[in-house]
Design a protein around this nucleic acid. Sequence first.
RNA 1: GCGCCUGUAGCUCAAUUGGAUAGAGCGAUGGACUUCGAAUCCAAAGGCUGAGAGUUCAAAUCUCUCCAGGCGCACCA
Length: 530
Amino acid sequence: MNIKHKLADAIKESIGIQEVQPHIDLVEPKGSQFGDYSTSIAFTLYRGRNPFEVATELISQIKLDIAFVDKIENKGGYINFWLNHSFVQQCLNNILEEGARFGSSNIGGGKKVLVEFVSTNPTGPLVIVSGRAASVGDSLVRVLNYTGFLADAEYYVDDSGKQIDLLEESIKARYNGLEDIPEGGYPGEYIKDIASRMKLLCRADFREFGIKSIIGQAKVTLERFGVRFNNWVYESDIRKAGGPQKVVAILEQKGLVYQKDGAVWLKMVDGEDKVLIKSDGDFTYRVPDIAYHIDKYNRGYELLIDLFGPDQSHIPELKAGLSICGVPEEVLKIITLQWVTFNRGGQKIGMSKRKGEFITLDELLDEVGKEAARFFFLTRKCESHLDFDIELAKQTSKDNPVYYVQYVGARISSILKMAGSSEDRRQRTEDGGQNPKSQILPQMRDPEKSGTNSNEVQEFKSSRVQDFKWQKEENPKTQILNPNEENPNEEKVVSENIPLTNARLVLIKAVRQVISNGLSLIGIGAPEEM
RNA sequence: GCGCCUGUAGCUCAAUUGGAUAGAGCGAUGGACUUCGAAUCCAAAGGCUGAGAGUUCAAAUCUCUCCAGGCGCACCA
């Protein structure tokens, strides 16, 4: 439980309001003149009354442990809280004690979650646009597991349908040495590679071998990217198990299906009816997809998260199909990722799969490395378009945020190493064997002097996993980046003032721990030196 | 035309999900290198949050209408 929750609970208890309504809306205010935490509860609690009076009344009822909160103030109805210094110090020590576990929680309560992402057609190498889904999905799984969910990552292989037929024919054409590939087929060099390997191995199972090669390569690429999938599920298996037929049968039973133009259609409430079975007798992708989601649910997952691209417009029929087939609506959570565009120092990079001028994820990894790639893909919230500057990602300067974050950690390590030797000296001479754990001095609370806000560090991981806004975790990182904010000539971490020095050492250690924990959640290392 | 997403400093983006004076970085301007790592720091500048209405104690945030941009609109997946 973090500070905010503790405080909110204490307030609730002392003013005698129950759970849920109204909830205590605690905010970390913008200016330090408004304290460490602030709430606007007085504005909402008794409508129609003067908020200032309400706040005064509330404050008189609030009984908080002095060891916890120093001061409570009423400013025009806002109630501001100042935390006790030694309490904050304790929080910093907690960070160090909890180490890599700091920030983890059990808000998931062991709920089984399945996150499905990337899931491309196995018709070619993974391209860089898949990198966003891979980064977001993998990080989401890490965050979920860190916060008490039991989350698995799953890759759905669309190994059926027209695209795969085209893949098969393309390989066959190359195998036979043809220069012309079928209309709409795949012209890439990798097809030739697969064909020549097949010749070498005397294979003729174009379809199976093609899929196997491409998926095998995807696994290698994802491994390089630090992305792991627990399950690989094949559409062909879902079909073999008869799931799609069952789905159509259920829909038929409910009278939601009709025939038109030789095809089988699903009635939609908005009138935008969708084809389920094509006139050639094959399912459209929708039916196996519904069957697949039912399969996930039947495997015991209580929450299904899908990462979709903005072009995946079959959400309405998927949701409708699932609820008709008995999967509760709230089980499925779809996160739509917007497009990524790539540029080099502002110069746009065109990308066309058809012209063969796409960049593969492997090429991106070769060029900028795993860590910068992962970081950059996470810098925007899912619903925003992301502009990925490949030149910037390669830079080893402050302009490159991933470099900067790692640099802060490395620099802290360097300072600690430097301080280590002199600390021994001091302990012998001045500490007399006392506990070297520091005191947080009042001046440490002043962000201008300490370079960062202690409670900001503590709250860093206050997770918003529940509403899937976990990208927010990114933001504090760029706020804590600067442990050397003070003028280097006046406010060094290590100085002749022993207690202050020790306090600052604890602070920067905590900062390093928090950075390291945050980075590991997005699959990035925190090097000791660079 | 319909659907989804986005419009915030010159540029790239934040803003604790409806809270107090809308903040960072880059760029541009002026300064600082006998450095606990200059791979850096400091200072001042920069805004009618695309436009307009509405909801309320309070709106960049919610609603509606426009305007501009991105993407999609298959019996492809």
